[in-house]
């Protein structure tokens, strides 16, 4: 009886695992098959190198994804520039400086930050961050790449802090003790011993945070202005791949070139996030091996 139960549970978990893999494969093949017809009418080179995206044009539609790629890249890079120093700093504080009581209160609070709906953060971008940026840079408005970067940084922070803190705490304590015994100060120990030892974990954390930033939709849709022109700098309005899909997929005519093209954009996005997640997974794996 017990053996049967064990086997059933074993089987159930196996099914669950397979189910998730099947979903992933299903989504991937859906993307590929729906994206593919787009290239019957759009030259794939034009798609990947064109600098104008204007599918419902007054005259000639054009499908170039470069401005979107650049936009996505810009807000993600900006978000990482803001989030990584703050994230690692906060993680180091939590793991090495804060008293256990402070840590117990602070860590859950940081994790709650991850649960704030993106619409709310986007709204803050419009009414709070936007006007602030406009004032600081002397612009007429603050709906631009910097705004998106700051908001995405806020959204990526919980992931980065929480995972970096785990990585720092799991550095074997003899590293720390050896460093202190050699006369290093606490600060030197954190900067020169613990962070390097936990580096692969921290990098993986940042990569996951990056994956979150690349795929985020509503926040950037609301806060970056969504102008489709090629951005010339961080003070220009940008329109990411995610916001383009979100804006246009809702009303596109079924099975039109535009429809397929949006799935092609989705495929590109999927490949990008897949590579990011894969890389972070590989790095994380490596780091687990080092400490075993």
């Amino acid at each position: 009886m017990r053996r049967v139960k064990d086997k059933m549970i074993h089987g159930l978990f196996f099914l669950n695992g397979i189910f998730v893999v099947a979903i992933l494969l299903g989504i991937f093949s859906l993307l590929v098959f729906t994206a593919f017809p787009a290239f019957k009418e759009i030259n794939i080179l034009d798609f990947l190198t064109g600098s104008i995206w204007n599918p419902d044009a007054y005259l000639e539609p054009s499908y170039g994804i470069v401005p979107m790629l650049v936009s996505t890249f810009m807000v993600t890079l900006g978000a990482l520039v803001v989030a990584i120093p703050i994230g690692i700093g906060a993680a180091a504080y939590l793991s090495d400086v804060a008293s256990p009581r402070v840590r117990e209160v602070t860590k859950p609070i940081i994790e709650i930050l991850a649960g704030i709906p993106s619409v709310v953060i986007g709204f803050l971008g419009i009414v709070l961050v936007g006007p602030f940026i406009a004032k600081v840079f002397g612009l007429s408005n603050g709906l631009n790449a910097i705004n998106g970067s700051i908001l995405l940084a806020v959204m990526a922070l919980p992931t980065i802090i929480s995972m970096s803190e785990d990585a720092l705490t799991s550095v074997p304590s003899n590293y720390e003790q050896a460093s202190l015994a050699l006369g290093a100060t606490k600060w030197q120990t954190v900067i020169k011993v613990k962070i390097p030892a936990a580096l692969s974990g921290i990098i993986a954390a940042c990569m996951l945070g990056m994956g979150r930033a690349v795929g985020e939709t509503m926040t950037v849709l609301m806060a970056t202005g969504c102008a489709p022109a090629m951005p010339k700098g961080f003070l220009d309005s940008v329109r990411t791949m995610t916001s383009t899909i979100a804006i246009e997929l809702g009303e596109v005519a079924y099975n039109s070139t535009h429809y397929y093209a949006l799935f092609a954009v989705g495929l590109v996005l999927f490949i990008i996030t897949f590579i990011i997640n894969m890389t972070s997974d590989i790095i994380l794996h490596k780091y687990e091996k080092v400490h075993r």
Binding site: I52, A57, L59, A227, A229
Partner: peptide, 9 residues
């Protein structure tokens, strides 16, 4: 004609 690409949507 076409909207300017710089129009915020």
């Amino acid at each position: 004609g076409e909207y300017a690409g710089t129009m915020r949507r």
